[in-house]
Deep mutational scan, measured.
Amino acid sequence: SFNTVDEWLEAIKMGQYKESFANAGFTSFDVVSQMMMEDILRVGVTLAGHQKKILNSIQVMRAQMN
């Protein structure tokens, strides 16, 4: 498990989005775990492969939080 959203993004090789997530207010796992595709688009993730990777990881995160 990760301590910060930045660490999580690095771990899934999506570190290039750290600033975008932070600027959009997605700075805690409570918020990130609620993200939908529209949120991912809003933070500027436009590549389908990256969207899928982030969404898949969020689903895993949700499962671990319950």
Rank of each mutant, 00 (worst) to 15 (best):
K13A: 15
S1W: 14
H50N: 04
M65K: 04
I54G: 00
F29M: 10
S57L: 08
V45C: 04
N23A: 14
L47R: 11
A22I: 09
Y17D: 01
V43D: 00
T46D: 07
N3L: 11
S33W: 07
M36V: 15
A24T: 06
M14K: 02
V43L: 14
V60N: 14
V32D: 01
E7M: 08
Q51C: 06
E19V: 11
M37V: 10
V43Y: 02
T4P: 06
L47A: 12
E19R: 09
S57R: 05
Q16T: 07
D30G: 09
G25I: 02
F21E: 01
G44E: 03
V32K: 00
I58K: 00
D6S: 13
D6V: 06
T27F: 06
T27D: 09
E7A: 10
S28W: 04
V5H: 01
R42L: 10
L41K: 12
E10Y: 06
V5F: 03
Q51M: 05
R62Y: 09
E7V: 05
V5Q: 00
D39F: 02
V31I: 14
W8M: 02
V43M: 07
G49K: 12
E10R: 05
V31A: 15
E10A: 07
V43W: 01
A63N: 15
D30F: 09
M14I: 03
R42C: 07
S57Q: 11
V45M: 03
E38H: 10
I12A: 03
M14C: 07
N66L: 07
V60D: 15
T46E: 08
L47F: 11
S28H: 07
T46C: 08
M36I: 14
K18P: 01
M36A: 12
V31W: 06
V43K: 00
R62N: 14
S33V: 13
L47P: 07
V60W: 11
E10F: 07
K53F: 14
A63D: 15
R42E: 09
I12D: 02
M35P: 00
N66W: 03
A11G: 14
A24G: 10
L55F: 11
K52Y: 10
A22D: 05
T4G: 08
S1E: 12
N3G: 13
G25E: 04
Q51I: 10
A63P: 06
